[in-house]
Amino acid sequence: MVSKEEILEGLAKAVIDGDEVKSEELAKKSLELGIDPYEALMNGCNKGMAKVSDLYECKEMFVPEILLSADAMYAAIDILKPHLKVDASAKKPAKVIIGVAQGDIHDIGKNLVKMMLEVAGFILVDVGKDVPVDTFVKKAEEEDADLVTISALMTTSMLYMEPVIKQLKGKNHKAKVIVGGAPINSDFAKKIGADGYGKDAVEAVKVAKNLIGA
């Protein structure tokens, strides 16, 4: 008989190892054993992903490893999610619009940030890549977003960040804006009036948490 602790630890390890066969198998087993799916998610998958983000931060894991970890995590989430009980009294999680700036189709960084924010408990609305300025603003309004995160790899596209910020501030929208991507640095972020800048996915999560006071 496998203990609950072993299952949770196994899930965390499967995520760290990027082993999606194992994580799927353990997620199923956790349901069979009657383990609360929320606990399996938080103390299994998310714990593993937190370790992944540490390893990424200290440059022991790189994009290939993280993508496999994400595959393993999502494989378990797909199994656990239908069984999660919705807690109506829980505090509403912050909502984040995420996308790649206009003219830019490089979305690997955006997808990493998205995943890390999801793991950190944010609700993500992914508007994709090559996203026009108006779409960011419209979506932020429609979704009553708390945060808007914009990424760019191309020097041409980084220039489409400022108009998003200007329009949101012009409308007095509450959403705070975080920018990131290869050509961006904190000076540039400050100059265009962004509320935050993340040099990588891990830092983006910290900045997001600070901005919404979580």
């Binding site: 994009v63 290939p64 993508l67 496999l68 595959d71 690997i108 997808n111």
Partner: peptide, 11 residues
């Protein structure tokens, strides 16, 4: 495609 290629680095 870049993310597919990234996975190939391990798999």
């Amino acid at each position: 495609e870049v993310t597919t290629l990234m996975r190939w680095f391990i798999r």
